[in-house]
Design a protein around this nucleic acid. Sequence first.
DNA 1: TTGCATTTTGGAATAAAATGGATTATATTG
DNA 2: CAATATAATCCATTTTATTCCAAAATGCAA
Lengths: 158, 158
Amino acid sequence: MLSFCGQDRILIDANGRFKMPQHFITDFLSGGNGEVVFYCLPEGALAIYPEQVYAEMRKRCNEDIRQAGMSMLKRRDLRRFGAWSASAAITPQGRLTLPNEFRQNTLLEPGTDAVIVGVEIGVEIWNWNRWQQELKLINEHELDRGDLELARDLKFEQ
Amino acid sequence: MLSFCGQDRILIDANGRFKMPQHFITDFLSGGNGEVVFYCLPEGALAIYPEQVYAEMRKRCNEDIRQAGMSMLKRRDLRRFGAWSASAAITPQGRLTLPNEFRQNTLLEPGTDAVIVGVEIGVEIWNWNRWQQELKLINEHELDRGDLELARDLKFEQ
DNA sequence: TTGCATTTTGGAATAAAATGGATTATATTG
DNA sequence: CAATATAATCCATTTTATTCCAAAATGCAA
């Protein structure tokens, strides 16, 4: 069975919480205990991954710690991921609270409509308007790629 | 569960103290007894690491000691870390006092707003304005990287 | 050395916010 | 159309943060 796919409209309640749609809960629970990681994306949406997925993404070793003392670049890297991530767990009622400091950047303030989107390895929460724009961008990019393929197909030497 | 992640606004009180957010206290306590090391970063923020992390960062071998006699560079290095670090412990009420000598460099004077940021291996305290600048840098860099990727995907010759 | 004043530290109380549960409403399925 | 499952709202409880006050420690001067 497919994991983490589809889109659902959700409502952020007055306390900044939302109800995770049932099929996504199932996805988070299979291969995990409901522990998740929020990650605030540069494109202005909030990603939610199962903890194991994020851990794989951010695998770290003692070498990283040693480098942090000497390298500003390394510190920036730790800072970026540290600042824009947070862990949480899906409650028995299937709810999650959006981290306070991430609400502004993602335009996910209490009392607003949003979209939750499956992204195969996890989900993303989008402000409704931003999601419409993103959809348009995705579509345009794909059309460009299509044109490119066509052009390549007509080129003499592949 | 993730350690040392997320951002929180904090207030430096009239005596230069602040309340460590609960989730960070938990992080410092797990794998440690709440002993921390302040380290004043060249980028103008104050890092706070669990003692063990700092120890790992500054691990010295006999080779270093021998070099100290011969190398001015090496001595500078030792001097920098020595001068700009200090140890402390989180109080039972979860408070920490900012070292007096570090307040000017970090723009963390009593009575100011600040941000505490998780950086995966510890936390950093930032003056509010400086943090906004740093965030802008981080974000712009990420968006540039995104544009570059996109352009590459649409380039004729792969 | 003693007494006073100032600064620093610790604790308690109050206020705010976040959490969890339960009930009501809505939607979906048979 | 009824029953079940799911979602949303409301309210109570707990947790967390902030402010204020008291005690202790420190420094200074007489």
